[in-house]
Write a protein that binds this DNA or RNA. Structure first.
Length: 882
RNA sequence: GGGAGCUUAGCUCAGCUGGUUCAGAGCAUCUGCCUUACAAGCAGAGGGUCACUGGUUCGAACCCAGUAGCUCCCACCA
């Protein structure tokens, strides 16, 4: 059968994926083997595959495939995350398109729509992972909001509450006006922003003017948020500020609402900033809130949940906060109350999910007491610091520690419907208990000797933060919280590797460690591999708005999954950002093609008995085999070493060079019969075995093409599928073959090239050496690869010839036509000069007493060897010159 | 404002305990080739004051100090 010149992935990928699935190679059940477990960072159900997922899941697949081939019971658990905010927003939007408003339907109706949506679209991203070749155990697919997992969330909530680690409290929290929910501190992204600092005049009251006045007739107050003026309840200055000392205790008039407020003093105020006067708005700023508490000030929240001005403000009611800011500035300017506008840089919090500007707001929410939590579970920090849980790269240990050292309480309640509902129950007076079920809640009230009427209790309407369920993921996917035999949990947990981005180190990684130790007394994973962030060539993050984010499925369609995987892996050393460029994937495609063509070559050979082939060819093929096997083993060892430190791009590069350079460029060329000749049977067997080993090394990285060729190699009936073939083991490299013969080939090619001669010009070669054995047997290979017509040893140096050094051996090429004596002499003289300089530096070292006294013996020995070599070379060159 | 990390070839990066496997790899570039597996290819070649300045050492890309630039994380300055 004629094979196409180019490898076409489309034809083979689906075939092998179904084959693996049908044979159950991805499935895992506990047995006597050593387990190797990875749980997927569950992508959002609403998500579609992006380049970050591609990288992340390719790495997981490489790790899991290698482990599987090493005979471990490999188990990669897939699943999705319900992603409260993102999904709820999507469903709200979808309903809006149908003309349904969330506020017009009941919670149950909404959830009905949401589940319907999830069932319809929630599997898309997992199907996309299959295209990538992900070898997940799909039978184990989990979802963070399925019943068992939600039960675990409720149990954990109740437990933490009973342990005194969850409390309900009123604090200043982050409010997302777009998502209409509170957020944890981690979900607020602070961005540096160009802002205006407005200098607003607060007029003195008549009472104040008796004591103090100025040409403005008021106090200048600097603010970036004039729209909160209606919530001002005081002006605060530093007690040591000479400018305002006499004003403390007196009053000024808040513009817009004409509220009379006091000037108070607090050390918090920075005399240098702005005018040194702060307008105090306790409802909208944490510091203002603290000042307000200290000084017993009123709290006037001027915003509603949408970020619009609330009726409480008494002005601009119903206006959007940003529109209001503009309007107020305009109005105040007209009244002459804004005297200056300064451009400053400050940081403004944005919602991680909706990107809306976050408002600070006083609210009653549920919190986890993190300081106490960590006090009770010190392993959360120590396990990472002492490498019981290993971070790759380790620099993230610092980040982790710093966060834990400065941790704040975790706000876990969200004003959403899509998620696990908070297991707290309230009576009509607002008394509450925490209980998993309504029945237990009534029971709890009774136990507290409080009477409640039947049907009176109402469950808290809020749900928990999505991460409050995700942190249980490595335990809950193995039913670690469920009553029962816990066979899976005991076998698979703790998992081996977690592969994820550093952006969720606090959201998720840290909290999984917490959950692991708190709920089961064990770490969730042995190692964490932090991938980089996928960026474009210009180091910009991939984003929809920039349009620099390619559609991964189109890439797979265009170049094939193997090529895409390779392109991503090559550019992704651990922890470094990966700079995506389509040319990398082209490189992957070219590599697939190279492997494909290597197969085409040997598939075309006619095989005959060894007896039918010349003995010198047999001998040289044997040498070629030995040579290649040593190279192969070296590469295998490199691959293992690289895997040990999760340097996957280096591992792949070792295989790449092995295949392209050692296997294709050298080995196959060595054993390739001259045109029209057959290959002997034993060599063919060796070639196949070597090719097989290469495919095995490739399988974790490029599973499709390697499986395809593995089957092709055995004409469709291999003993085993490649995916479960043993991965080559690291062992000592034996039979290191001296590759002086290769040096001759390179030198001859080089000479021909530098003289501008056609490769078709054949040379005769004479080698002067004390060790002809280094070359003997390679003659036919040298002749074939370097186009040498004849090779002989230690013959007299011809009258006219080109000479060069192969190590310390000499090589002569009698080829008068290309000899330019003058130039040749010049070159040799230059070479001698260089060597003499080199020799001088070596001599300087060796005659340095301190060097000889302090350096390690092997270093000195090396220097002596260098000296001897250089001297020998110089001597030979000089005699050649003469 | 605090902390961490980085700076090696045109680009992206290796370089472990200081010592010719210490100046490397891949890509890109240049030269010559449609050689009967592959032009998505073959054979070659060029290219770096290892950010800068000092120091330690017989010896520094590597250790120390300082300088400059970049990146990330954290932080309540109106």
């Amino acid at each position: 059968m004629e094979l196409d010149k180019h490898y076409s992935p489309q034809a083979v990928e689906d075939k092998w994926y179904s084959y693996w699935m049908d044979k159950g190679f991805f499935d895992s059940t506990p047995d006597e083997r050593e387990p190797f477990t990875i749980v997927i960072p569950p992508p959002n159900v609403t998500g579609v595959l992006h380049m970050g997922h591609m990288l992340n899941n390719t790495i997981q697949d490489v790790l899991i495939r290698k482990a599987r081939m090493e005979g471990k019971n490999a188990c990669w658990v897939p699943g999705t995350d319900h992603a409260s905010i993102a999904t709820e927003a999507k469903v709200v939007k979808m309903l809006a398109e149908k003309g349904i408003k969330k506020s017009d339907i009941t919670r149950d109706e909404f959830l009905g729509h949401a589940w319907e949506w999830k069932n319809k679209y929630g599997g898309i991203i997992l199907d996309q992972l299959k295209k990538l070749g992900a070898s997940c155990d799909w039978k184990r697919t989990r979802f963070t909001m399925e019943e068992d997992l939600s039960n675990a969330v409720a149990d954990v909530f109740v437990k933490l509450y009973n342990d005194g680690l969850i409390y309900r409290g009123t604090k200043m929290v982050n409010w997302d006006p777009a998502g209409k929910t509170t957020l944890s501190d981690e979900e607020v992204i602070y961005k540096e922003t160009q802002s205006n600092l407005y200098y607003v005049t607060y007029k003195f009251t008549d009472e104040t003017k008796h004591h103090f006045n100025n040409e403005l007739g008021g106090l200048q107050v600097a603010t970036t948020r004039p729209e909160t003026i209606m919530g001002d309840v005081a002006i605060c200055v530093n007690p040591n500020d000479e400018r305002y000392k006499t004003l403390i205790g007196h009053t000024v008039i808040v513009p817009v609402v004409n509220r009379v407020v006091k000037v108070i003093a607090d050390d918090y105020i920075d005399i240098e900033f702005g005018t040194g006067c702060l307008k105090v708005t306790p409802a909208h700023d944490e510091n203002d809130y603290n000042i307000g508490e200290k000084h017993g000030l009123e709290i006037i929240d001027v915003l509603d949940d949408d970020g619009k001005i609330h009726a409480r403000a008494g002005a601009y009611v119903g206006m959007d906060r940003f529109a209001c800011r503009k309007q107020i500035v305009k109005d105040l300017e007209e009244q002459g109350l804004i005297t200056k506008t300064e451009h400053i840089k400050n940081t403004v919090g944005h919602s991680e999910r909706t990107d809306a500007v976050i408002e600070k707001k006083i609210s009653t929410q549920w919190f986890v007491d993190m300081k106490e939590f960590l006090k009770r579970h010190p392993q959360v920090l120590s396990s990472v610091m002492n490498d019981e849980v290993k971070f790759y790269p380790s620099k993230f240990k610092n980040v982790y520690k710093h966060w834990l050292d400065n941790i704040k309480d975790w706000n876990i309640s969200r004003q959403l419907w899509w998620g696990q509902r908070i297991p707290a129950w309230y009576d009509n007076q607002g008394n509450y208990v925490v209980a998993k079920t309504e029945v237990e809640a009534y029971e709890a009230f009774k136990n507290k000797n409080m009477t409640v009427a039947a049907g009176e209790l109402k469950q808290d309407p809020d749900v928990v933060d999505t991460w409050f369920s995700s942190w249980l993921w490595p335990i809950s996917v193995f039913d670690g919280f469920k009553e029962g035999d816990k066979k899976d949990y005991n076998y698979y947990y703790p998992t081996n590797d977690l592969v994820t981005g550093p952006d969720i180190i606090f959201f998720w990684v840290a909290r999984m460690v917490m959950a692991g130790y708190a709920f089961n007394g064990q770490k969730p994973f042995n190692s964490v591999y932090f991938t980089g962030i996928v960026r474009d060539k210009l180091r910009r993050k991939m984003s929809k708005s920039l349009g620099n984010s390619p559609d991964p499925l189109e890439l797979i369609e265009k170049y094939g999954a193997d090529a895409t995987r390779m392109g991503l892996l090559l550019s992704a050393p651990a922890g470094n950002d990966i700079l995506y460029d389509e040319s990398l994937i082209e490189q992957g495609r070219n590599f697939c093609n190279k492997i494909w063509n290597a197969y085409r070559l040997l598939a075309g050979w006619e095989v005959v008995d060894d007896t039918k082939v010349d003995a010198t060819v047999l001998k040289s093929n044997q040498l070629a085999n030995e040579w290649f096997k040593a190279r192969l083993q070296t590469a295998v060892n490199d691959v293992h070493a690289a895997f040990k430190d999760y340097r996957l791009s280096e591992a792949l590069m070792s295989v790449y060079k092995l295949v392209w350079d050692d296997f294709c460029s050298w080995y196959l060329e060595m054993v390739k019969p001259v045109y029209g000749e057959p290959i002997n049977q034993s060599t063919m067997a060796e070639v196949k075995a070597n090719f097989e080993n290469i495919l095995t090394l490739l399988q974790p990285f490029m599973p499709f093409i390697s499986e395809e060729l593995h089957h092709a190699l055995y004409e469709g009936t291999p003993a085993k599928a490649l995916i479960v073939t043993d991965f080559p083991k690291a062992t000592e490299v034996v039979n290191l073959v001296d590759d002086k013969a290769l040096a001759i080939i390179a030198e001859v090619r080089n000479l021909r090239n530098s003289k501008g001669l056609s490769p078709k010009v054949a040379f005769e070669v004479i080698v002067k050496t004390e060790q002809p054995a280094n070359y003997q047997g390679w003659e036919s290979i040298i002749q074939k690869l370097a186009n040498v017509s004849a090779i002989s040893y230690n013959a007299d140096k011809p009258e006219k010839c080109i000479s060069s050094l192969i190590g310390t051996d000499e090589m002569y090429i009698p080829y008068a036509e290309m000899l330019d004596e003058a130039e040749e002499k010049k070159k040799i003289a230059e070479e001698i000069d260089y060597l003499k300089g080199f020799l001088k530096s070596v001599d300087a070292k060796l005659s340095n007493e301190k060097f000889v006294a302090n350096a390690k013996p092997e270093v000195i020995e090396k220097e002596r060897q260098k000296k001897a070599d250089a001297e020998e070379k110089i001597q030979k060159l000089e005699s050649g010159l003469a």
